Amino acid sequence: MSGKLFGKCVVVTGAAQGIGMECARAYHREGARVAILDVSLEQGEQAAAAIGPETIFVHCDVASAASVEAARSAVLAVFGRVDALHNNAGIATPSKPLHETDEEEWDKLFQVNLKSVLWTTKHFYKDLKATKGPILNTASMVGLIGQPNHAAYVATKGALISLTKAMALDYATDGIRVNAICPAGVWTPMLRRWAAEQENEADITSYLDRIHPLGNCPEGDVIADAAAFLLSDSARFITGCILPVSGGAELGYRL
Protein backbone atom coordinates (compact mmCIF):
# COMPACT_ATOMS: atom_id res chain seq x y z
CA MET A 1 0.00 0.00 0.00
CA SER A 2 1.24 3.51 -0.77
CA GLY A 3 -0.05 7.05 -0.83
CA LYS A 4 0.69 10.61 0.19
CA LEU A 5 0.20 9.76 3.87
CA PHE A 6 1.66 6.26 3.88
CA GLY A 7 2.63 5.08 7.36
CA LYS A 8 1.54 8.26 9.11
CA CYS A 9 -0.85 8.38 12.06
CA VAL A 10 -3.54 11.02 11.57
CA VAL A 11 -5.86 12.08 14.39
CA VAL A 12 -9.21 13.51 13.23
CA THR A 13 -11.74 15.00 15.62
CA GLY A 14 -15.45 14.95 14.83
CA ALA A 15 -14.97 12.19 12.25
CA ALA A 16 -17.92 9.93 13.02
CA GLN A 17 -19.85 11.42 10.12
CA GLY A 18 -19.90 14.22 7.55
CA ILE A 19 -16.75 16.02 6.42
CA GLY A 20 -14.68 14.46 9.19
CA MET A 21 -15.54 10.93 8.14
CA GLU A 22 -14.86 11.72 4.48
CA CYS A 23 -11.47 13.15 5.49
CA ALA A 24 -10.68 10.08 7.60
CA ARG A 25 -11.60 7.91 4.62
CA ALA A 26 -9.31 9.94 2.33
CA TYR A 27 -6.42 9.77 4.79
CA HIS A 28 -6.82 6.00 5.04
CA ARG A 29 -6.94 5.73 1.26
CA GLU A 30 -3.64 7.64 1.13
CA GLY A 31 -2.04 5.05 3.40
CA ALA A 32 -2.49 6.62 6.84
CA ARG A 33 -3.37 4.97 10.10
CA VAL A 34 -6.35 6.95 11.34
CA ALA A 35 -7.67 7.72 14.83
CA ILE A 36 -11.25 8.98 14.86
CA LEU A 37 -12.07 11.07 17.94
CA ASP A 38 -15.76 11.75 18.42
CA VAL A 39 -18.39 12.12 21.11
CA SER A 40 -20.84 9.88 19.21
CA LEU A 41 -20.05 6.38 20.40
CA GLU A 42 -22.17 4.26 18.05
CA GLN A 43 -21.51 6.38 14.96
CA GLY A 44 -17.80 6.53 15.72
CA GLU A 45 -17.50 2.78 15.99
CA GLN A 46 -19.44 2.35 12.75
CA ALA A 47 -17.24 4.88 10.96
CA ALA A 48 -14.01 3.17 12.02
CA ALA A 49 -15.35 -0.21 10.93
CA ALA A 50 -16.51 1.18 7.58
CA ILE A 51 -13.17 2.83 6.80
CA GLY A 52 -11.22 -0.35 7.43
CA PRO A 53 -8.02 -1.74 8.98
CA GLU A 54 -5.58 0.57 10.76
CA THR A 55 -8.50 2.79 11.78
CA ILE A 56 -9.54 3.16 15.40
CA PHE A 57 -12.30 5.00 17.18
CA VAL A 58 -11.64 6.79 20.47
CA HIS A 59 -14.59 8.17 22.38
CA CYS A 60 -13.77 11.82 23.10
CA ASP A 61 -15.52 15.04 24.03
CA VAL A 62 -13.23 17.67 22.51
CA ALA A 63 -14.71 20.34 24.77
CA SER A 64 -13.15 18.54 27.76
CA ALA A 65 -9.43 18.79 28.49
CA ALA A 66 -9.48 15.52 30.44
CA SER A 67 -11.25 13.70 27.62
CA VAL A 68 -8.73 14.90 25.04
CA GLU A 69 -5.84 13.92 27.28
CA ALA A 70 -7.29 10.43 27.70
CA ALA A 71 -7.85 10.17 23.95
CA ARG A 72 -4.21 11.01 23.28
CA SER A 73 -3.11 8.20 25.59
CA ALA A 74 -5.44 5.80 23.78
CA VAL A 75 -4.07 6.77 20.36
CA LEU A 76 -0.45 6.41 21.48
CA ALA A 77 -1.21 3.03 23.03
CA VAL A 78 -2.26 1.72 19.62
CA PHE A 79 -0.14 3.64 17.11
CA GLY A 80 2.77 4.87 19.23
CA ARG A 81 3.01 8.25 17.51
CA VAL A 82 0.99 11.08 15.98
CA ASP A 83 2.01 12.52 12.60
CA ALA A 84 -0.89 14.90 11.90
CA LEU A 85 -3.86 16.45 13.66
CA HIS A 86 -7.08 17.54 11.98
CA ASN A 87 -9.31 19.67 14.21
CA ASN A 88 -12.62 19.06 12.50
CA ALA A 89 -15.15 18.75 15.33
CA GLY A 90 -17.79 21.44 15.30
CA ILE A 91 -21.43 22.34 15.79
CA ALA A 92 -23.51 24.92 13.93
CA THR A 93 -26.68 25.45 15.92
CA PRO A 94 -28.45 27.62 16.88
CA SER A 95 -29.48 29.59 13.79
CA LYS A 96 -30.01 32.97 15.45
CA PRO A 97 -28.84 36.58 15.39
CA LEU A 98 -26.71 37.63 18.33
CA HIS A 99 -29.44 39.26 20.45
CA GLU A 100 -31.48 36.03 20.39
CA THR A 101 -28.52 33.81 21.34
CA ASP A 102 -28.40 32.89 25.00
CA GLU A 103 -25.24 32.44 27.04
CA GLU A 104 -25.44 28.66 27.13
CA GLU A 105 -25.72 28.45 23.34
CA TRP A 106 -22.82 30.88 22.89
CA ASP A 107 -20.59 29.00 25.34
CA LYS A 108 -21.34 25.60 23.80
CA LEU A 109 -20.41 26.78 20.32
CA PHE A 110 -17.14 28.27 21.54
CA GLN A 111 -16.28 25.22 23.65
CA VAL A 112 -16.72 22.79 20.77
CA ASN A 113 -15.62 24.89 17.79
CA LEU A 114 -12.75 26.87 19.31
CA LYS A 115 -11.71 25.85 22.81
CA SER A 116 -11.34 22.27 21.58
CA VAL A 117 -8.35 23.45 19.53
CA LEU A 118 -6.73 24.68 22.74
CA TRP A 119 -7.09 21.22 24.27
CA THR A 120 -5.91 19.24 21.25
CA THR A 121 -2.93 21.54 20.74
CA LYS A 122 -1.93 21.36 24.40
CA HIS A 123 -2.09 17.58 24.49
CA PHE A 124 -0.74 16.67 21.05
CA TYR A 125 1.87 19.42 20.69
CA LYS A 126 4.85 17.36 21.90
CA ASP A 127 3.89 14.45 19.65
CA LEU A 128 3.60 16.70 16.60
CA LYS A 129 6.86 18.46 17.43
CA ALA A 130 8.59 15.08 17.52
CA THR A 131 7.28 14.12 14.08
CA LYS A 132 7.11 17.64 12.60
CA GLY A 133 3.48 16.85 11.95
CA PRO A 134 1.00 19.36 10.49
CA ILE A 135 -2.24 20.65 11.97
CA LEU A 136 -5.34 21.30 9.90
CA ASN A 137 -8.36 23.22 11.18
CA THR A 138 -11.79 22.99 9.60
CA ALA A 139 -13.02 26.58 9.42
CA SER A 140 -15.76 27.83 7.09
CA MET A 141 -16.38 30.38 4.38
CA VAL A 142 -18.74 32.12 6.82
CA GLY A 143 -15.70 33.00 8.92
CA LEU A 144 -14.46 35.04 5.97
CA ILE A 145 -17.63 36.51 4.48
CA GLY A 146 -20.26 36.25 7.24
CA GLN A 147 -23.74 34.75 7.26
CA PRO A 148 -27.07 36.08 8.54
CA ASN A 149 -28.71 34.55 11.62
CA HIS A 150 -25.60 32.60 12.70
CA ALA A 151 -23.74 35.16 14.80
CA ALA A 152 -22.13 32.82 17.34
CA TYR A 153 -21.18 30.19 14.76
CA VAL A 154 -19.67 32.81 12.45
CA ALA A 155 -17.73 34.22 15.40
CA THR A 156 -16.19 30.83 16.17
CA LYS A 157 -15.11 30.27 12.58
CA GLY A 158 -13.71 33.78 12.20
CA ALA A 159 -11.75 33.28 15.41
CA LEU A 160 -10.50 29.91 14.20
CA ILE A 161 -9.17 31.49 11.01
CA SER A 162 -7.22 34.09 13.00
CA LEU A 163 -6.05 31.42 15.44
CA THR A 164 -4.74 29.32 12.56
CA LYS A 165 -2.51 32.17 11.43
CA ALA A 166 -1.18 32.73 14.96
CA MET A 167 -0.50 29.01 15.40
CA ALA A 168 1.30 28.87 12.05
CA LEU A 169 3.69 31.57 13.24
CA ASP A 170 4.18 30.09 16.70
CA TYR A 171 4.95 26.57 15.52
CA ALA A 172 6.90 27.18 12.30
CA THR A 173 10.22 26.86 14.13
CA ASP A 174 9.07 23.42 15.33
CA GLY A 175 8.42 22.31 11.77
CA ILE A 176 4.68 22.16 12.46
CA ARG A 177 2.61 23.58 9.61
CA VAL A 178 -0.85 24.91 10.52
CA ASN A 179 -3.51 25.52 7.88
CA ALA A 180 -7.28 25.89 7.70
CA ILE A 181 -9.78 24.70 5.15
CA CYS A 182 -12.95 26.67 4.43
CA PRO A 183 -15.92 24.85 2.94
CA ALA A 184 -19.00 26.73 1.78
CA GLY A 185 -22.03 24.47 1.49
CA VAL A 186 -21.35 20.74 1.82
CA TRP A 187 -24.05 18.14 2.31
CA THR A 188 -23.46 16.66 5.74
CA PRO A 189 -25.79 15.56 8.52
CA MET A 190 -25.09 18.89 10.26
CA LEU A 191 -26.04 20.90 7.17
CA ARG A 192 -29.21 18.86 6.73
CA ARG A 193 -30.14 19.64 10.35
CA TRP A 194 -29.47 23.32 9.67
CA ALA A 195 -31.70 23.19 6.59
CA ALA A 196 -34.49 21.69 8.67
CA GLU A 197 -34.29 24.65 11.07
CA GLN A 198 -34.98 27.21 8.35
CA GLU A 199 -38.42 28.61 7.71
CA ASN A 200 -38.17 27.94 3.98
CA GLU A 201 -36.64 24.46 4.11
CA ALA A 202 -38.01 23.55 0.68
CA ASP A 203 -35.91 26.30 -0.92
CA ILE A 204 -32.64 25.46 0.84
CA THR A 205 -31.38 22.86 -1.65
CA SER A 206 -31.91 25.24 -4.54
CA TYR A 207 -30.15 28.03 -2.64
CA LEU A 208 -27.15 25.84 -1.79
CA ASP A 209 -26.82 24.74 -5.38
CA ARG A 210 -26.83 28.33 -6.60
CA ILE A 211 -24.07 29.67 -4.36
CA HIS A 212 -21.31 27.51 -5.88
CA PRO A 213 -20.28 28.74 -9.34
CA LEU A 214 -18.56 25.43 -10.11
CA GLY A 215 -21.75 23.45 -9.64
CA ASN A 216 -24.27 22.06 -7.19
CA CYS A 217 -23.69 21.74 -3.45
CA PRO A 218 -21.10 18.97 -3.10
CA GLU A 219 -20.56 16.04 -0.77
CA GLY A 220 -17.67 15.92 1.67
CA ASP A 221 -15.21 14.18 -0.65
CA VAL A 222 -14.24 17.49 -2.28
CA ILE A 223 -13.11 18.79 1.11
CA ALA A 224 -11.35 15.52 1.96
CA ASP A 225 -9.17 15.57 -1.16
CA ALA A 226 -7.94 19.09 -0.38
CA ALA A 227 -7.40 18.17 3.28
CA ALA A 228 -5.29 15.14 2.36
CA PHE A 229 -3.09 17.41 0.23
CA LEU A 230 -2.59 19.93 3.06
CA LEU A 231 -1.53 17.18 5.49
CA SER A 232 0.84 15.59 2.98
CA ASP A 233 4.45 16.42 2.17
CA SER A 234 3.23 17.84 -1.14
CA ALA A 235 2.19 20.89 0.95
CA ARG A 236 5.46 20.97 2.87
CA PHE A 237 6.05 24.71 2.27
CA ILE A 238 2.48 25.81 2.96
CA THR A 239 1.52 27.17 6.36
CA GLY A 240 -0.94 29.78 7.60
CA CYS A 241 -3.05 29.12 4.51
CA ILE A 242 -6.80 29.72 4.76
CA LEU A 243 -7.95 27.61 1.81
CA PRO A 244 -11.45 28.05 0.38
CA VAL A 245 -12.80 24.77 -1.01
CA SER A 246 -16.03 26.36 -2.01
CA GLY A 247 -16.58 26.05 -5.72
CA GLY A 248 -15.92 29.78 -5.97
CA ALA A 249 -18.76 30.78 -3.64
CA GLU A 250 -16.77 33.72 -2.31
CA LEU A 251 -16.43 35.15 -5.82
CA GLY A 252 -20.12 35.88 -6.18
CA TYR A 253 -23.27 33.79 -6.11
CA ARG A 254 -24.82 32.61 -9.36
CA LEU A 255 -28.15 34.12 -10.39
Rank of each mutant, 00 (worst) to 15 (best):
L109S: 06
H59V: 05
I36C: 02
L41A: 11
A224V: 08
C9S: 14
A71Q: 12
N113R: 13
S116K: 09
G143K: 10
E30I: 04
G247F: 03
N113M: 09
S232V: 04
I91G: 11
G248E: 10
L128I: 05
N113D: 15
R25S: 13
V154H: 07
A48Y: 05
N137Q: 06
F229L: 14
D174S: 14
N113Q: 13
E197D: 04
P189F: 02
Q43F: 10
Q46W: 02
P148C: 03
N216L: 00
C241Y: 10
D221K: 06
N216R: 01
V154N: 07
A139E: 05
V68W: 09
F229Q: 08
M1W: 11
P53K: 11
G18E: 08
R254V: 08
A226Y: 10
C182N: 15
G248M: 10
V75G: 00
Q147E: 06
D203M: 03
P148S: 05
R33G: 06
M21L: 14
R33P: 04
M190C: 06
F6T: 15
F110Q: 05
S2V: 00
A48D: 04
P213V: 01
Q198A: 02
V62A: 03
G146M: 05
S116R: 07
T121R: 06
G90L: 05
D221G: 02
S232H: 04
D107V: 15
D83H: 14
M167Y: 11
V178N: 08
D209I: 01
S234M: 14
P134Q: 03
A15E: 04
A65Y: 15
A70L: 12
R81V: 14
G133E: 01
E197M: 06
H59K: 14
I145V: 15
L144T: 15
